[in-house]
């Protein structure tokens, strides 16, 4: 009985292994969305200035091995974050195409918006100051405030019409 179980297990292992080989032998699409999600996180260091998703394997030997390694990890079931962690541990944060969103690198992400918000608040107060200054000086009649550029346009057309008549 035991022998039969061993043979059965061996048979299952053999079938399973064959399926793995089949999966690996199948051509992998290096331009698929799932590969892009993982590979575009990493900067190629060959000097091309591109990430490992974009870098052309024909012109860069570095990316050939890198791409194969990523596929191997994906086949092992590693997700995007785990693969990212693996490479950051080896090469440091520099391998990433964008800084981490934690620690000091978070400053990179936050700073532009902080500056924008602060400047926005400053502009609001400046406009408020200017509006108040105007209000204290003189009340603008309502009819004038509604005047828009189309009315300017009409006026200039009229002037031109008159000019044509008399000149």
């Amino acid at each position: 009985m035991k022998r039969k179980i061993y043979i059965g297990l061996l048979l299952i292992a053999f079938i399973f292994q064959a399926s793995i080989i089949q999966v690996q032998a199948k051509e992998f699409d290096y331009k698929s969305k799932e590969f892009e999600a993982v590979a575009s996180q990493f900067m190629c260091t060959c000097g091309c200035g591109q990430d490992h998703f974009e870098c052309d394997p024909k012109t860069c030997n570095l990316t050939v091995g890198f791409k194969e390694d990523i596929v191997e990890m994906m086949n092992k079931g590693w997700n995007k974050e785990k693969i990212r962690e693996y490479y950051v541990n080896i090469y440091g944060e520099e391998i990433l195409t964008a800084p981490e969103k934690s620690g000091f690198s978070l400053v990179a992400w936050v700073m532009p918006f902080v500056v924008l918000i602060l400047a926005g608040v400053a502009i609001f107060f400046i406009i408020r100051k200017w509006v108040k200054k105007k209000e204290t000086e003189v009340q603008t009649p309502d009819n004038e405030s509604d005047k828009d550029e189309v009315e300017d346009e009409i006026l200039s057309s009229m002037i031109e019409e008159e000019r044509k008549k008399y000149l």
Binding site: G92, E93, E94, I95, T97, P99, F104, A108, M111, P112
Partner: peptide, 24 residues
């Protein structure tokens, strides 16, 4: 500007180089 010079800022502050690329 900030994204362009951040690699220099990062290196100056913590001695770690970072890449600031397209996703950023």
């Amino acid at each position: 500007f900030w994204g362009t010079v951040f690699p220099l800022v990062s290196e100056a502050v913590r001695g770690t180089k970072v890449t600031v690329g397209m996703p950023f």
